[in-house]
Design a binder for these strands. Structure first.
Lengths: 182, 182
DNA sequence: GGGCGTTTTGGAATAATGTTCTAGGTGGTT
DNA sequence: AACCACCTAGAACATTATTCCAAAACGCCC
């Protein structure tokens, strides 16, 4: 059910997929559907939380797999694109839908940002990364990769190539690393 | 009418605004509405074209206002954020909605990209900008600014500050400019 | 100003879609 | 077998988009 919903939501958007389509794709009756979910929106919300949890967990693992700031910064960029390639349905869904405000989601996001940000501050204190606010750091770090994936998933550009990922990784380090002259 | 639609579409999304809301906000009757537009979606499409035309025109003007590559690259980043601040409804609408494929839109986009890209190639041939494909250049150039604006318009971060814009402008130049050692 | 064709408006009728409700079925427990 | 909690099915209902036609407004010619 959730699997079918993911594909439909990714292709047509939450608003664009009818309940009939959902039911046809997953073979559940109206009553059954409403027994398990409060409605279409709630399915979308559950899916959203699931996707973002999956992404954030993998992101943190990637971060911890590197011990130098340079490797982590570049690695995270490559990771972001890789994750989108491996889970295109989830990525398309996450980038397209604007989730309704949800306490569970806020909680999760806050915990994620806290963890990433504390890592960042340690690196910055060591003189490996520049000291900027979290938002600026985030958009410089993953903004280009995010935009590249978005364009690809929207059909506006080709699938990101290894060479492009290299460019983006290097650029991120050039923007965020503090250990070269400036 | 289009003005009211813009605000509602920006706030609630196209799918989230009912026709009644649209009619209440603009004071037109059902028949009148369907006489002028083929439906809700078509209003969205018309709005989308209008917004993107406005943006692209202003972007090209900004580009031509600089004669050095450095000023143009940095200026465009600042311009992007400035434009979003000046037209938050339009920006929110453009960043949120996935427009249906439209020949008019494709035509316009192609012309825009052609123009920007030809400017880019001239600068690259002069040795002022790096030689990369258009997509990579675009995401490195405006990806961070775009992501920053998106976060702000989605209420996930504060309004972009002058300091943030400076950071992004500098980073864009550091990524794209070719006249410093590398 | 008065007819007359065209454009525009208004709102009832219709269609599509999301949600609720109720009657029943299923499987496990005693 | 009787009971009970959970689940399924689909008809009934509510909301919303769209169609349709009659009437009003408009522009134009005489």
């Amino acid at each position: 059910m959730l699997r079918a919903a993911l594909e439909l939501f990714g292709r047509d958007g939450v608003a664009g997929t009818t309940l009939s389509a959902l039911r046809a794709a997953s073979g559940v009756s109206v009553g059954s559907f409403y027994h398990h979910f409060a409605g279409k929106e709630q399915v979308a919300e559950a899916l959203f939380v699931e996707c973002i949890a999956m992404y954030q967990e993998a992101f943190l693992a990637e971060l911890k797999a590197h011990d130098g700031a340079r490797g982590a910064v570049s690695g995270a960029v490559a990771f972001h694109v890789r994750w989108c390639k491996e889970h295109p349905d989830r990525a398309r869904f996450m980038f397209t839908e604007r989730p309704a405000a949800s306490a569970a989601l806020d909680e999760r996001n806050k915990a994620f940002y806290r963890e990433v940000w504390s890592w960042w501050r340690v690196q910055a204190r060591h003189g490996a990364l520049i000291g900027v606010d979290g938002t600026t750091a985030f958009v410089l770090w993953l903004g280009p990769a995010q935009e590249l994936c978005r364009m690809w998933l929207n059909g506006q550009s080709a699938e990101p190539s290894a060479r492009q990922i290299e460019w983006l990784s290097e650029a991120a380090w050039r923007s965020l690393g503090a250990d070269h002259d400036r």
